[in-house]
Design a protein around this nucleic acid. Sequence first.
DNA 1: ATCTTTCACTCTGTATACACATCTCGGCGC
DNA 2: GCGCCGAGATGTGTATACAGAGTGAAAGAT
Lengths: 250, 250
Amino acid sequence: MAEREVDRSVSQTVKAQLALRDQILSGVLRPGERISELQAVETTGASRTPVRMALVRLEEEGLLEAIPSGGFMVKAFSERDISDSIELRGTLEGLAARFAAERGVSARELEPLKECLAAIDGLLRQVPISVDAFSSYVALNARFHALLTELSRSPPLIRQIDRASALPFASPSGFVMAQSALPEAQQILIIGQEHHRVVIDAIENREGARAEAIMREHARLAVRNLRLALRNRTHLGLLPALALIKTATD
Amino acid sequence: MAEREVDRSVSQTVKAQLALRDQILSGVLRPGERISELQAVETTGASRTPVRMALVRLEEEGLLEAIPSGGFMVKAFSERDISDSIELRGTLEGLAARFAAERGVSARELEPLKECLAAIDGLLRQVPISVDAFSSYVALNARFHALLTELSRSPPLIRQIDRASALPFASPSGFVMAQSALPEAQQILIIGQEHHRVVIDAIENREGARAEAIMREHARLAVRNLRLALRNRTHLGLLPALALIKTATD
DNA sequence: ATCTTTCACTCTGTATACACATCTCGGCGC
DNA sequence: GCGCCGAGATGTGTATACAGAGTGAAAGAT
């Protein structure tokens, strides 16, 4: 129906935020580069006030850094920053899994998780996995992690996990994509799926410690694989926000 | 020297943010109450633009919540939100302690921590502890936690811990104050100090798992004590941001 | 030739004006 | 009497104008 409706229904602030985030993640704005409000006004089409609001939000999100003398610059991340972010998110998800297990979850609440699991099982039956199936996998995996997080029923924890996932390389989709760059990608996906199965089982049986441990192992595996993937950057076409990684020459 | 210098050197945005935070934490603005920008402009003395920036920052900080129809309201927290926030921070600090232990810390870096420890030891020798000594304790305890966090040398983790401490009841000072409301406060402080001693020992000996475990236990103890303290609210004069806790009548 | 100083420009921080949406209150109709 | 509709007011979202600070370049002096 109305095609251009979004242009009016979405606020200028959100529009500017999305546009700037795209520019950062796509590498148009390089790490360390100062962001000019005026230039942002031109490229986003919004005015200075919404642009400023967007800049503040992106700073809180972790993509920008405030410059003491004023203004913002694109943040640069080291490889260790990235692996730490993944491990951090794994630790938080571990806590979420433990909360879910200790506080108890009804069969009805667990249903969507099991559906996710079954759907992923179906996808992984393909060897090797097709490109389409892989992108379905990425979406389903993100959904699984989001559902698991919500099982904790802890708004502060959910909020914190969302924050920890804001950085693209730390999000479930992000590190799955990074792992997929490896030759043994298929095997990695299968192991990850096994982790998912175990965490659900642990939550069902109310084994908090086991649920937590498996999620942390899940993240540690991702960190190991990411390190491997970063060794041969030629395979990293799929890694989002590679532009954010500061190189040795910087 | 220059006393009024701050009024000009501090930006209007920061001034507004501090003023609004004070109003929220002191209970002038009640949980669930909508914040009027116009009213905020009057009470803070800043103009609308910096006030809006401050509101966005306070939302990201977790003290405010965006209203779908526009504007912001003061966020309300349940008792579980609070205990979850503390446990969350403990988990994060546990990770920081593990990072510190695994990555190794020089004797020179550990020095400030040990000074903190010794200073607190001196304070705790008083039985019962005086009011002045207690507020020194609160400051030293906060410093100890901040130093420990930095030992992780992980900017993403440090950032996340800072965020988790933004809510006053989740900060080190906050929950120490809450615990102090209990009759067995002195004993609690001594146990906490013992935890501090153990974590330093674990980091020195590069025992990551032990360092992490003790910090999590440290937080769990705080949660238990906070639950006790909340049972008899009459003792809670020192608990900051009690105004943020939503009551059963809400 | 190099260093220093000054001038000008650009950018951010702040203030304010304008437009539109939302909510409320009063009046009118059923 | 109750409900609905409209007008007004309040308040947010947005745009823009202005001031001050910081930066860079250019010119002059040593």
